[in-house]
């Protein structure tokens, strides 16, 4: 025997009057941008004009999305270019921004906020006179940028 039953439910919550069912949820989006500190130069070798108080400048790109420290160092902790025969030429080294504001005046470290810019490093020899031996003078400078 077949019996049909109809259940009548009164109430608003489940009462649907002529509309379809719907469900919703919320998705949360999260993402992480890693800290970035980079430095880049066009040429690793810089040809320095060996004239007193004449500055040779080269560009370097610095990108950082966090505060960072820039450090300039040399192997002997001196700013001298040597010719391999014991002769040396002293030079000044600085890092400046596009407005010629000094970021770093010499060897050592400086802190800086986030940046996306092209800076310059500048080499200025001094103390060259007629007795400064002719020849090729070199030095190696290490520039490091590191997130704080």
């Amino acid at each position: 025997m077949k019996t049909n039953k109809t259940l009548w439910i009164a109430g608003a919550a489940l009462s649907v009057c002529g509309s379809s069912f719907a469900a919703s949820d919320t998705v949360g989006l999260t993402g992480t941008i890693a800290q970035v500190v980079t430095i880049d130069i066009a040429n690793s070798s810089t040809s320095v004009t060996m004239t007193n108080n004449t500055t040779t400048s080269e560009n370097m790109s610095v990108d950082a999305n966090v505060p960072f420290t820039i450090t300039v160092a040399t192997a002997d902790n001196e700013l001298t270019m040597a010719n391999g025969a014991g002769d040396e030429v002293t030079y000044a080294f600085s890092v400046k921004d596009a407005s010629s504001n000094e970021i770093l005046a010499s060897l050592g470290s400086a802190n800086h906020n986030e940046v996306d810019a092209t800076w310059t490093y500048n080499v200025t020899p001094s103390g060259i006179d007629g007795s400064t031996d002719a020849g090729t003078y070199t030095d190696t400078v290490t520039v490091t940028v590191a997130a704080q």
Binding site: Q35, S44, Y91, Y137, T140
Partner: peptide, 16 residues
């Protein structure tokens, strides 16, 4: 991106 630090080596060369 790259690491959070980077180092470049500058070779300075001048001739008298």
């Amino acid at each position: 991106y790259a690491a959070s630090s980077e180092t470049i080596i500058l070779q300075l060369i001048g001739t008298i």
